[in-house]
Design a protein around this nucleic acid. Structure first.
Lengths: 152, 152
DNA sequence: TTTGGTGCAAATTCTTTGCATCTCT
DNA sequence: AGAGATGCAAAGAATTTGCACCAAA
């Protein structure tokens, strides 16, 4: 099956136990976890699940619109159980991602549509900054904990 | 040397031949190439250069503000020799990235600064769509040529 | 039953690094 | 001279995939 052409209307989305738990765990948190973090969350309920299955399901779930993939920057991709349109801030030091209480900007897409030859499908707007916790830490320490952050 | 702390004012940026050619090649094009594409461009002039050196220099050049790293989505990172603030459209089928003739939106950052606890450093705005060339192709073909596109 | 899903492990892809050697300034 | 840079190859990290078996619908 071609991953890119998967479509929520055509594929019935069989609700296996693993898929249900992944979706459930992701919806329980607001922390925009990585695949690996989700793997560890899910493993507490389904010890036998494999990382590959987590990846496959995250792909399927986001293709079908049930979750959101956050692809911007950062080493590991992050996932969001909240599919309503909203924006994020990403900490450039520790990599954490938070939701932003900012109303959506309707004018953005239409401003682009004209003239660029592309068929515009959407846009991605993400803010970068330093999260409250990292602002308190001395700079050297902050740089150390990078790891899952802005790298790659 | 800590990569994150590299700073244009403190590091003199020794202009080696490889560094100069990489910068030069990147400035010659508007195609936002990947590290690997840049490697191949540069190799025509410096056959002995290694991919590692290309990566190291792209990192250094972007840290020093001489080029721009485009991290949003897509499999491989892309680089831009144009450091003036501007926006991009990325084709969701073939992965190509084009510049957008859109004036910058000054209100964006200030709209976020209040209340989120983060120290806002900037934002990333990227549009997604289907490029002119891909719009002409039949869908199945389009999906095929994905590869460097939205994946990963 | 059948078609998609799963676990496992191996494979990929992109990127980073250690090290001995070179080269700008 | 000496701090940085390079080439090479090996290591890493994140993600994908082939395959034989399993399980929802």
């Amino acid at each position: 099956m071609n991953k890119k052409s998967r479509d929520k209307s055509k594929f019935p989305l069989r609700m296996t136990r693993q898929r249900r738990v992944i979706l459930d765990e992701l919806r329980k948190v607001t922390s925009h976890p990585t695949a690996d973090e989700i793997y560890n969350m899910v493993r507490r309920r389904l010890p036998g699940i494999s990382l590959g299955t987590v990846y496959r399901n995250l792909e399927i779930l986001s293709d079908s619109g049930m979750i959101q993939k956050l692809e911007s920057c950062g080493s590991a991709r992050r996932y969001d159980g909240n599919v309503k349109m909203h924006y994020h801030v990403r900490c450039v030091r520790c990599g954490r991602v938070d939701d932003l209480p900012l109303s959506t900007l309707p004018a953005l897409e239409s401003a682009v549509r004209k003239g660029c030859g592309y068929e515009i499908l959407g846009y991605r707007l993400e803010f970068m900054g330093v999260c409250p916790k990292c602002r308190k830490l001395p700079k050297t320490t902050k740089e150390r904990q990078d790891k899952n952050g802005t790298k790659r």
